[in-house]
């Protein structure tokens, strides 16, 4: 009878040992590779900033003229009653004038975290672009949030009134068409955009952006 008690641990010793070995090997590989993955993501963000701020045509014109945007970045933190939220905010400067902002924001999607880049104009009143940095939504349904057909709906929407996904065809100026079969994913993207735009606007109104404070 004594043996029966022990049985579970005794039987599972191989599973436990393997789990430990595999876990530590994944951890060490992740430790080694995560700086590279991080750099990849930053590079991608920097590449996307002109397109998000100036639009696809504007970015193409800029590239032809051989000019580049100066990009400053800073963490913007919003204090709430019982939580703190931080956003990485990029300031795009064209010929010594602020031409727009890009906010990196994330939130819970249907399957996993969704990470977005939101382009805002210089007054932060309207959206100039949207890009999906990372998503693991259902392939073929929720994953459509990264397609241009969905993202383009956000361009030139105002940030004052929250953007609402609708299933019956967008008619009002603050409505967008939700993706069929992916209501949750569409709603998540809208709420991430709404919350981030509002938070960053209020935070920057209080404490102005410090140039070159952090790269």
């Amino acid at each position: 009878m004594e043996q029966m008690k022990n049985n579970f641990i005794v039987q599972a010793w191989l599973v436990l040992i393997l789990a430990l070995c595999f876990g530590s090997s994944i951890a060490s590989i992740n430790l080694a590779l995560s700086p590279i993955i991080k750099t990849n993501k930053i590079n991608e963000t920097m590449e996307k900033v002109p397109e998000l701020v100036l639009g696809i045509n504007g970015a193409a014109k800029l590239a032809i003229s051989g000019k580049k945007l100066d990009i400053n970045s800073q963490m913007v933190t919003i204090e709430r009653k019982n939580s703190r939220i931080s956003y990485k905010v990029f300031q795009a400067i064209n010929e010594e004038e602020v031409s727009g902002w890009v906010v990196k924001a994330s939130g819970q999607g249907y399957a996993d975290k969704i990470e977005l880049l939101i382009g805002l104009d210089k007054t932060m009143e309207s959206i100039t672009g949207l890009f999906v940095l990372e998503q693991k939504e259902t392939p073929g349904l929720g994953s459509k949030i990264s397609q241009w057909d969905f993202r383009k709906q956000f361009v030139s929407k105002k940030t004052k009134s929250p953007i609402i996904p609708t299933k019956t065809g967008a008619s009002a100026s603050n409505e967008i068409d939700a993706i069929t079969g992916a209501t949750i994913s569409s709603r998540s993207v809208c709420s991430i955009v709404n919350v981030a735009a509002k938070n960053v606007r209020t935070a920057l109104a209080k404490t102005p952006f410090k140039i070159n404070q952090e790269k």
């Binding site: 090997s25 994944i26 590989i29 590779l33 995560s34 590279i36 993955i37 990849n40």
Partner: peptide, 10 residues
């Protein structure tokens, strides 16, 4: 997981 991390890095 190893393959996934490797692809994301390289």
């Amino acid at each position: 997981t190893l393959v996934d991390r490797f692809l994301a890095a390289y």
